[in-house]
Simulated assay, not measured.
Amino acid sequence: MYSVLLVIHSAFRWLVLGSVLYGIYRGGRGYSRRVSFTRFDNSIRHTTATIAHIQLLIGYILYFNSPLVSYFRAHFTEARHQFDLLFFGLIHILLMTLAIVFITVGSSVSKRMDSDREKFKTMTIWFSLALVIILTAIPWPFSPLANRPYIRTF
C-alpha cells in the first residue's frame, strides 16, 4: 500500500500545481480586469483548497509510514547530517504543511471578503505564497535539496 500511495502522491502533485496556478491566474485576471467573482471563481478557490488537502492527507499517511522517516526519527542525531534524510524527515513535511495552511487561509479569507476585487486579490496573494513554498519543497529531479523523478512508477 505504501508504494501505491507514493505513486499517487507523486502524480497528484501535478494536480495541486495545476490548480494553484489556475487559481492564481483566475485571481490575477479577476483583480486586474475588475470583473465579478463568479460561482466558477468560487469553485476554483474551493477545489484548489480541497485538492491541496487531499494531497496533504496522502503526504501525512506516507510520512508516518515511511521507512526513511522512521529511520530519521530513530537516529535523529546522525540522520540530520544526511541532507536527504533531513529533507524528507523534517523540511518537506513542514514546508508543505505551511503551504497548505497558506492555501487554506487564502481560500477562507477570500470567501469572506466583501468586494469581488478583494476576493481576487486575497486569493492571488495567498495562493502565490503557497506556490513559492511548494515549488521549493518539491523534490524535483534537478533539486540540490533532494531529488526524485517527475512521476514515480511502480
Rank of each mutant, 00 (worst) to 15 (best):
Y2P: 00
V4N: 05
V4W: 12
L5K: 03
V7W: 11
H9W: 12
H9I: 06
A11M: 12
A11I: 12
A11L: 12
R13F: 15
W14A: 01
L15P: 01
V16C: 03
V16H: 06
V16L: 06
L17S: 02
G18D: 01
G18F: 06
S19P: 01
V20S: 10
L21S: 09
L21I: 06
L21C: 02
L21Y: 09
G23W: 04
Y25N: 06
R26S: 05
R26C: 02
G27C: 00
G28C: 10
G28L: 11
G28S: 13
R29P: 02
G30A: 04
Y31L: 09
V35M: 12
F37D: 09
D41C: 06
S43C: 10
R45P: 02
A49Y: 13
A49G: 08
T50R: 10
I51S: 04
L57S: 04
I58P: 03
I58C: 03
I58L: 07
L62D: 02
Y63P: 05
N65R: 13
S66Y: 09
S66R: 05
P67H: 03
P67C: 01
L68Q: 12
L68I: 00
S70F: 14
Y71Q: 10
F72A: 01
R73T: 08
H75S: 14
T77A: 12
A79S: 07
R80D: 03
H81S: 08
Q82N: 11
D84I: 04
L85D: 05
F87E: 12
L90D: 02
H92R: 11
I93D: 06
I93M: 05
I93Y: 01
L94N: 13
T97P: 02
L98S: 09
I100F: 14
I100A: 11
I100S: 07
I100M: 13
V101N: 06
V101P: 01
F102Q: 10
F102K: 02
I103T: 11
T104C: 08
T104K: 00
V105R: 00
G106D: 08
G106V: 08
S108F: 15
S108Y: 15
V109W: 11
R112D: 05
M113Q: 14
D114W: 08
S115M: 07
S115Q: 06
D116H: 13
R117K: 14
R117A: 15
E118Q: 13
F120C: 08
T122R: 04
T122Q: 04
M123P: 01
I125P: 04
I125M: 03
I125H: 09
W126C: 00
F127I: 03
A130F: 11
L131Q: 09
I134F: 06
L135E: 12
L135Y: 05
L135M: 14
T136G: 11
A137R: 08
A137E: 12
A137G: 12
I138N: 04
P141F: 13
P141R: 12
F142R: 14
S143Y: 01
P144Q: 08
R148A: 15
R148H: 14
P149W: 15
P149H: 13
I151Y: 15
R152P: 00
R152E: 00
